[in-house]
Amino acid sequence: MTTLLTVENLSKVFHLGGSLFREGRELVALNDINLTVEKGETLAIVGESGCGKTTLGRCIIKAQPVSSGHVFYHRDEGGHVDLTTLGKREIEPYRRDIRMIFQDPMSSLNPNMRVFDIVAEPLRVHRLLRGKELEARVYDTLGKVGISPDAAGRYPHAFSGGQRQRIGIARALVLNPKLVIADEAVSALDVSIQAQVLNLLDDLKEEFGLTYIFISHDLGVVNYIADRVVVMYLGHVVENAPTDLLFERPRHPYTEMLLEALPIADPSRRKGRNKELKGEIPYLGNRPKGCPFHTRCKYAQDICRAEKPALRPINGTAQLAACHFAETLDLKGAYEAPIKAIA
């Protein structure tokens, strides 16, 4: 596998509430993020609200400026380029390769533009195609996401949520991108529609050879779609592992807590009470010292309160975790029966 994208020591700090009369607060939304995205994989970024997953997605594509660190994009023709250093003009070709799908199908489509124009907009802006060719490309893309070309003359309000999300996907795909960042792309949809869109994303990935960064809070969906999962907590990556390893045996207590909390659609696997779910996510502004998770961790020791654990491979596997006791803790996974070995 070849690497498509490398995120190196990426940090993002928001400055809040500064005014003439008092100094603003610093809010570290992303703290020293490192990860790689392999070509052709679906990398999921999960975490609860405020963990920085959306900010990370937006920083990668430079929809928001980063505070420090690098995002290297590896070009097909070899070599790589640091997206964070590029200017508005220079980044344009890469924005053709990296596209985004948004969460809210209501607000992500311009209500005053016809569906055709919404999908055609990126082609027009980049002056890639015009006239008949442009029409053909737009209709073709709409067809691929399951919107009939007859509907292209309508405005977004005539469509249901699921159909709008398909239109948003068409807008992302019309430029033939390599990497698609899907930010909670199915979260706002009803389950039956969500399943349609998940299948569609799967099909499109195969057909176009896409790579996805799939940002979500829903571990069930992530388990279904992702090859690898990055778990974030308070702006940190706490675990980064292939999906099966992570769900089989998480190496970070926060991952275990997420899996523990995940309701399973099967009453016979009901978890019952006495779950050890402690506390709530602290406010980002007063992040604890040491391990960011120690305030809620049932395994926390003194060292956790003093020293921040580094993200490191566990027992030489592809599973990375940032926990002082990652090797020794026996954390509970979410799969039904234990399986002997995973190839």
Binding site: F102, Q103, S108, P122, V125, G168, R171
Partner: peptide, 13 residues
Amino acid sequence: TEDFVTAAQLDGA
């Protein structure tokens, strides 16, 4: 802050 404006920015407009 609407997503469609962000989308337009990312379109390179």
